[in-house]
Lab assay of single mutants.
Amino acid sequence: SAEDNLGPLPENWEMAYTENGEVYFIDHNTKTTSWLDPRCLNKQQK
C-alpha cells in the first residue's frame, strides 16, 4: 500500500476522511489541515 512505501506519518499528524471519503491530513502541531501528505512533502524537500 502507499502507506508502506512512505512509512508512518510525522509526529502529531493524523490522517482523516471527509464526508465524501477524501483523505486529508491534520497537523496537531499547528492546528491546521492539509490535502497534501506531509510524507510526500518531506521527500520533495530533500
Rank of each mutant, 00 (worst) to 15 (best):
S1H: 04
S1M: 08
S1D: 06
S1F: 15
S1T: 15
S1L: 06
A2I: 10
A2D: 06
A2R: 10
A2K: 15
E3K: 09
E3R: 08
E3T: 12
E3D: 12
E3W: 05
D4L: 09
D4T: 10
N5D: 10
N5P: 08
L6S: 11
L6E: 09
G7T: 09
G7Q: 07
G7V: 09
G7R: 08
G7Y: 07
G7K: 08
L9Q: 03
L9H: 01
L9M: 11
L9K: 02
L9S: 01
L9A: 02
P10Y: 02
P10K: 02
P10W: 01
P10G: 04
E11L: 10
E11C: 08
E11Y: 12
N12C: 06
N12G: 15
N12M: 08
E14D: 11
M15Q: 14
M15P: 05
M15L: 13
A16N: 06
A16K: 07
A16D: 08
A16Q: 04
Y17R: 15
Y17S: 14
T18I: 03
T18G: 06
T18E: 04
E19A: 13
E19H: 11
E19V: 11
E19F: 06
N20L: 12
G21S: 11
G21L: 06
E22A: 07
V23I: 13
Y24L: 04
Y24A: 01
Y24G: 01
Y24K: 02
F25Y: 15
F25P: 01
I26T: 05
I26Q: 05
I26H: 02
D27W: 00
D27Q: 04
D27I: 00
H28T: 06
T30F: 05
T30G: 06
T30K: 08
T30W: 04
K31G: 10
K31V: 04
K31W: 06
K31P: 01
T32D: 04
T33D: 01
T33G: 01
T33S: 05
T33L: 02
S34F: 00
S34C: 05
W35V: 03
W35E: 03
W35P: 02
L36W: 09
L36C: 08
L36R: 09
L36V: 13
D37H: 04
D37G: 02
P38V: 01
R39W: 02
C40N: 13
C40T: 14
C40K: 15
C40Y: 09
C40I: 15
L41A: 14
L41D: 14
L41S: 14
L41G: 15
L41M: 15
N42Y: 15
N42Q: 13
K43F: 12
K43N: 15
K43D: 15
K43V: 14
Q44M: 07
Q44I: 04
Q45K: 15
K46C: 05
